[in-house]
């Protein structure tokens, strides 16, 4: 491969990586909207609507999704931050952290009611979640 062509491909690789990051920030609004609708539904007793916004595996992890999702104690709150990396996202809400995955038909909640493990927050341990896949 000619040097010029290689430089172009290298720049394309860097650009791909940067665009991936850039697109991630554009996805933030969509992620936040799904998280807010999910928490509102779960917090206000609309279990059916909340379960529709759960990832299929997360919904299946609950015996009776519509009843159980409203009894977990999830509440809507102010969104404090959103991280989107590819097809995975994390949303910080007052008193809660949610993890979402992007499916072909949109973002769905993979885990909710999550908290970092208090004494192991920097040792690569996953969050502890009330609802999980």
């Amino acid at each position: 491969m000619g040097i010029r062509a290689t430089v172009v491909v290298c720049l394309a690789l860097v650009a791909t990586a940067l665009i991936t990051t850039g697109c991630a920030s554009a996805e933030g609004t969509s992620v936040t909207s799904t998280a807010e609708r999910f928490l509102s539904a779960a917090g206000e007793g609309r279990g059916g609507q909340a379960c529709l916004l759960l990832a299929p595996e997360a919904a299946r992890s609950l015996d009776d999704c519509e009843k159980q999702i409203v009894s977990v104690g999830l509440r809507a709150g102010v969104v404090r931050g959103v991280d989107v990396w590819g097809d995975e996202a994390r949303v910080w809400v007052d008193g809660d952290t949610l993890f979402l995955h992007r499916f072909p038909d949109g973002w769905r909640v993979r885990a909710a009611g999550c908290e970092p493990r208090p004494d192991q927050s920097h040792t690569g341990q996953p969050y502890e979640c009330e609802v999980n896949t």
Binding site: V7, C10, V14, A17, D83, W85, G86, R90, F99, Y127
Partner: peptide
């Protein structure tokens, strides 16, 4: 070309790594 490829690896690697971190419910 080495530095450019290595930079590309670091930027793409960060995105791939963080994607995996979130998939595993980690920071």
């Amino acid at each position: 070309l080495f530095l450019l490829s290595w930079l590309a690896q670091s930027v793409a690697g960060l995105a791939a790594y963080n994607n995996e971190q979130l998939a595993q419910l980690e920071d």
